[in-house]
Simulated assay, not measured.
Amino acid sequence: MLLVERQTPKGLLVSVCDRNVLGESFEAPDGRASITVTEDFYGEGADAVDEEAVIDSLSRASVANLVGTETVEVAIDSGFVDAEHVLELEGTRHAQFLRM
């Protein structure tokens, strides 16, 4: 997985994606949602990390953007994302969370 942390005025923004989705675009079957996993947002300055590093980063995040089956599964399994709120986009998964 590729992980980027950015400190913002509102807290830590975490972006995580599966390696194989970087540079790809995905659309919901109904066409109401789409995402492009850009190098600028998900790849630039990214570290290749394991599940433990993703969990650590998500535990400190104020906001997270997550793309890819493995990445979203880690977030679900560790309790950061509820599976029923995950978008299925052309064979991959996307989730976001905001800690308030």
Rank of each mutant, 00 (worst) to 15 (best):
Glu24Arg: 13
Ala33Cys: 03
Ile35Phe: 08
Asp47Trp: 10
Tyr42Thr: 01
Ala33Thr: 07
Gly43Met: 03
Asp30Trp: 03
Glu27Ala: 13
Val49Tyr: 00
Glu44Arg: 15
Glu44Ala: 14
Asp47Thr: 10
Val21Leu: 11
Val37His: 05
Glu24Phe: 10
Ile35Trp: 00
Glu51Cys: 00
Glu27Thr: 14
Val49Pro: 02
Glu39Ser: 14
Leu22Pro: 01
Val49Met: 00
Ala46Cys: 06
Pro29Asn: 07
Ala33Gly: 01
Asp40Arg: 15
Ser25Val: 13
Glu27Leu: 14
Asp47Met: 13
Gly23Cys: 06
Ala28Leu: 10
Gly45His: 06
Asp40Tyr: 13
Ser25Gln: 14
Arg32Asn: 09
Arg32Pro: 01
Gly45Phe: 11
Val49Ser: 03
Val49Asn: 03
Gly45Ala: 12
Leu22Trp: 05
Ser34Phe: 14
Asp50Ser: 12
Val21Tyr: 13
Thr36Cys: 11
Leu22Lys: 08
Phe41Cys: 01
Ile35His: 00
Gly23Met: 07
Glu44Met: 15
Glu51His: 01
Val21Met: 08
Phe26Gly: 03
Tyr42Lys: 03
Gly45Ile: 06
Glu24Trp: 07
Pro29Arg: 07
Tyr42Leu: 08
Thr36Tyr: 05
Ala48Thr: 07
Phe41Lys: 11
Val49Gln: 00
Glu24Ser: 12
Ser25Arg: 14
Val37Asp: 04
Val37Pro: 05
Pro29Cys: 00
Glu44Asp: 09
Arg32Glu: 10
Glu39Gly: 01
Arg32Cys: 01
Phe26Trp: 02
Asp47Gln: 15
Glu51Phe: 07
Ala33Lys: 12
Gly45Gln: 05
Gly45Asp: 08
Val21Ser: 08
Glu51Met: 05
Gly43Glu: 04
Ala46Gln: 09
Val37Glu: 03
Phe26Asp: 02
Ser25Leu: 02
Val49Arg: 04
Gly31Met: 02
Ala33Asp: 00
Pro29Lys: 00
Ala33Leu: 13
Gly23His: 12
Gly45Val: 08
Glu51Thr: 06
Ala48Glu: 14
Thr38Cys: 06
Val49Cys: 05
Phe41Gly: 03
Gly23Pro: 04
Leu22Ile: 06
Val21Thr: 13
Glu51Asp: 15
Asp30Ile: 09
Gly23Asp: 06
Ile35Cys: 06
Ser25Ala: 15
Glu39Lys: 15
Asp40Val: 14
Gly45Leu: 09
Gly43Lys: 07
Gly23Thr: 09
Glu51Trp: 04
Val49Ala: 00
Glu24Lys: 15
Ala33Tyr: 03
Leu22Phe: 08
Glu44Lys: 14
Val37Gly: 07
Gly23Glu: 03
Ala28Phe: 00
Gly31Glu: 05
Gly43Pro: 06
Thr36Ser: 15
Tyr42Ala: 03
Ile35Asp: 05
Ala33Ile: 04
Arg32Met: 09
Phe26Leu: 04
Asp40Ile: 13
Val37Tyr: 12
Gly45Ser: 06
Gly45Pro: 12
Val49Ile: 12
Glu39Leu: 14
Asp30Gly: 04
Arg32Ala: 15
